[in-house]
Amino acid sequence: MVISIAVHGAPYASAGSRTALRFAASALGLGHRIHRVFFHHDGVLAAAGQGVAPQDEEDLHAGWVRLGESHGVELAICIANALKRGMLDEAERDRYEKDAATAHPAFTVVGLGQLIEAMTESDRFVTFAA
């Protein structure tokens, strides 16, 4: 089955980012395909590449990057929501002449059309609320 996921909450501030990550890993383990993880609202903060997790807390950003890199899952952050929250990839950093690209390159910055495309191209769409 083809599944897409929306993550609405920021990692740590909301449990949803972690729940979504565990759900995605289980879905892959059971043989499903994750078409796209769409990070929406504060969910875009999962892309923050400069975070340092304490040793006794799970590093959610690293978990998402691992999921993306080892399973080829597309990690998409909503451009409108990301820009205002300071999540920029290199292209957006250059466009807005900011100092740093804050989003890890495992995440792609996309428009809301990709959210709707994820809905139309998947058998199931699961929203993880903040």
């Binding site: 609202h41 909503c78 409108a80 959210l115 495309e117 139309t120």
Partner: peptide, 19 residues
């Protein structure tokens, strides 16, 4: 929060997708 506003933006985009 901006939750409602950002959800409406998504609904507007969905509208142009012929769904």
């Amino acid at each position: 929060s901006t939750y409602a506003l950002e959800a409406i933006e998504a609904a507007l985009v969905a509208g142009v997708f012929d769904q």
